[in-house]
Amino acid sequence: MNKTGFQPSLKGRALRLLSQREHSRTELERKLAPHEEVPGELAKALDELQARDFINDGRAIESVVHRRASKLGAARVKQELAAKGLSGEAVAEALENLKDTEFSRAQEVWRKKFGTPAQDPHELAKHMRFLLTRGFNAEVVRRVVKVSDSGDESSD
């Protein structure tokens, strides 16, 4: 007998996860695989949820982009999408749209973190590393730091 008494079904577990945020099918498979008792049971449950549009990779892509794009560059968003098992044309399209706003998003992230131009080369490197680790393109990072250094010509 298990300690918790009631054990939710795989479909119930999947619905609970989906009620918290959008998940890709791959993500759900990874999270629920340890709870599968009968081989094929998980795939059947996920097929049913996908047929009823509870699992929708397009919505999962939109969700990640919406939640993360304001803080991260296109490279990091792409990495997160790949980690969730999402790829293909919809991901490419979402990333292309992100690249159009990469400079303004990087500028806003920089402004929130630092707000004032770097005073020396060490601090400049710190500003650049900060933006690079968040997945912003190196050329965009150089432009953001250069613009901030030359009098904050923000594009408001």
Rank of each mutant, 00 (worst) to 15 (best):
K3A: 11
T4M: 10
G5N: 10
G5K: 12
Q7F: 02
Q7E: 13
S9D: 00
L10F: 04
G12S: 04
G12L: 01
A14P: 02
A14Q: 00
R16M: 04
R16Y: 07
L17S: 00
L17R: 04
L18R: 09
L18F: 09
S19Y: 06
S19W: 07
S19R: 10
R21A: 02
R21E: 02
H23P: 00
S24Y: 03
S24D: 01
R25K: 08
T26Y: 06
E27M: 04
E27R: 01
E27D: 02
R30S: 09
L32H: 02
A33E: 06
A33P: 00
P34W: 06
H35V: 00
E36T: 04
E36R: 07
V38F: 05
P39D: 05
P39M: 09
G40H: 10
E41V: 03
E41K: 08
A43F: 07
A43K: 09
K44P: 01
K44T: 11
K44G: 03
A45E: 12
L46P: 05
D47R: 12
E48Y: 09
L49S: 01
L49W: 09
A51K: 12
R52T: 12
R52F: 04
R52W: 07
I55S: 06
I55K: 01
N56D: 14
N56V: 06
D57A: 05
D57V: 04
D57E: 14
G58D: 13
G58Q: 13
I61A: 05
I61Q: 02
E62M: 07
V64R: 07
V65N: 08
R67L: 15
R67W: 10
R68D: 13
R68C: 11
A69W: 01
S70V: 12
S70R: 15
A75C: 00
R76E: 11
V77N: 06
K78T: 06
K78I: 00
K84D: 07
K84E: 09
G88C: 06
E89T: 09
A90M: 06
V91H: 07
V91E: 09
A92S: 14
A92P: 02
A92N: 13
E93P: 08
L95S: 05
L95N: 02
N97C: 01
N97K: 14
F103N: 05
S104Y: 08
R105I: 03
Q107S: 13
Q107K: 12
Q107M: 14
Q107N: 11
K112N: 12
K113G: 07
K113A: 15
T116L: 14
P117T: 15
P117N: 12
P117D: 10
A118L: 11
D120H: 11
D120W: 08
A125M: 12
K126N: 09
K126M: 13
M128Q: 15
R129I: 04
F130S: 07
L131T: 08
L132Q: 14
T133S: 08
G135I: 05
N137V: 10
A138E: 15
A138T: 12
E139H: 04
E139L: 12
R142V: 10
R143Q: 13
R143M: 13
V145C: 13
K146M: 13
K146T: 14
S148Y: 05
D149M: 15
S150C: 09
G151K: 09
G151W: 08
D152E: 15
S154R: 15
S155R: 15
